[in-house]
Design a protein around this nucleic acid. Structure first.
Lengths: 191, 191
DNA sequence: GTCTATAAAGCGATAGAC
DNA sequence: GTCTATCGCTTTATAGAC
């Protein structure tokens, strides 16, 4: 079904960038009006609950993107290795090779988490779960799959922090390569 | 009460917690006055430059703590393995087993980074460098030491994000155990 | 060094005309 | 659906008495 109000959806990408750059508390309505091109009247028409509803819409959008581009490939690829390949490709693309931070991670760290606890929890929980399932299909035992999935998801978040701290996207790309390697099993001798 | 807040340094721990919980933008002077017990007059007496100077003082304090409790043991332990042990012990203690987030990581993610870029960069750079040096002394080659150090520092940051997203400190503790294991080399068979 | 009072600006949010 | 005007509140920061 088509959105009744096309403009609401059009504002989401700009809103997402603003929340990523400033966090929830730091994202001001004046910057939001400036960068969405929407006046306060329009904003409150589309998001009657204000900033909280804008952030909610952004979180929904992120969840949808990951469902399509990350979780679904992990779940449904016939070859689990191909699904994991797709995951890393999608992640590198989504986070602009580490130049863009994770909105959910940003929200998780400060008291914004309390506003969106279930969305934040679910984002990481689903990601870890579907990745662990793919690793199991790759031959990891249950425990190793679970642990490696946790390490990979955490490793991505940590790499985003470091890449931003150093303003160095190459650091992120290299970290992704190593994490990808770890999903291929521990004692794989070279071919 | 044993000791009143009679000097600037006494306010630092409370300030640190406030910035950790709310981020830089979300930390309001009203909360700061409440939790430090200092009025605005006193606060601006100790920190003439306001919030920015308070955050700077907190960052300095964190840097000092890590220098003493993390970097120095890594550099100066005769046995590098013992230094790394101390690092993980200190990290688990400092972050309250994952219940406390990393102030520097929090600042790194949003636009607060631009205010304190050099402090943030240095925190992670020094940590990675001294850990890599310790790993080299443990027998890692230069490249593996560098990569493992980066993975460990990033892994800690990521584990903090996940632990907080799930409100699960056990997740953090388990992640630390696995990262610690990785500093012991890849193919170490039973002792 | 700590207090109260206050300034000046910005905040999120609302109302009502069009 | 978009605009302008405005509300009530909080923000950071300052001034000046004590």
């Amino acid at each position: 079904m088509v959105r009744k109000i096309a403009e609401r959806g059009d504002a989401i990408p700009a809103l997402a960038e603003i929340f990523r750059e400033h966090g929830f508390a730091g994202a001001s309505l004046s910057e939001i009006t400036k960068r969405t091109g929407l006046g306060k009247g329009s904003l409150y028409h589309f998001f009657p609950n204000g900033k909280e509803e804008m952030a909610q819409a952004v979180l929904d959008d992120v969840a949808g993107w990951f469902e399509t581009n990350v979780f679904m490939p992990l779940r449904e690829s016939e070859d689990p290795a191909a699904g994991i390949d797709q995951m890393f490709k999608a992640v590198i693309r989504f986070f602009h090779s580490g130049r863009r931070v994770c909105l959910v991670g940003t929200f998780a760290l400060d008291d914004t988490r309390d506003r969106f606890a279930s969305e934040i929890q679910s984002y990481f929980a689903v990601w870890t779960r579907v990745l662990a399932a793919a690793l199991k299909r790759r031959g990891f035992d249950t425990r190793a799959a679970r642990e490696t999935a946790e390490d990979v998801v955490a490793g991505i978040q940590g790499a985003l922090v470091l890449a931003r701290a150093h303003d160095d996207s190459a650091l992120f790309t290299r970290a992704m390569k190593r994490l990808h390697q770890r999903t291929k099993g521990v004692h794989r001798d070279r071919p």
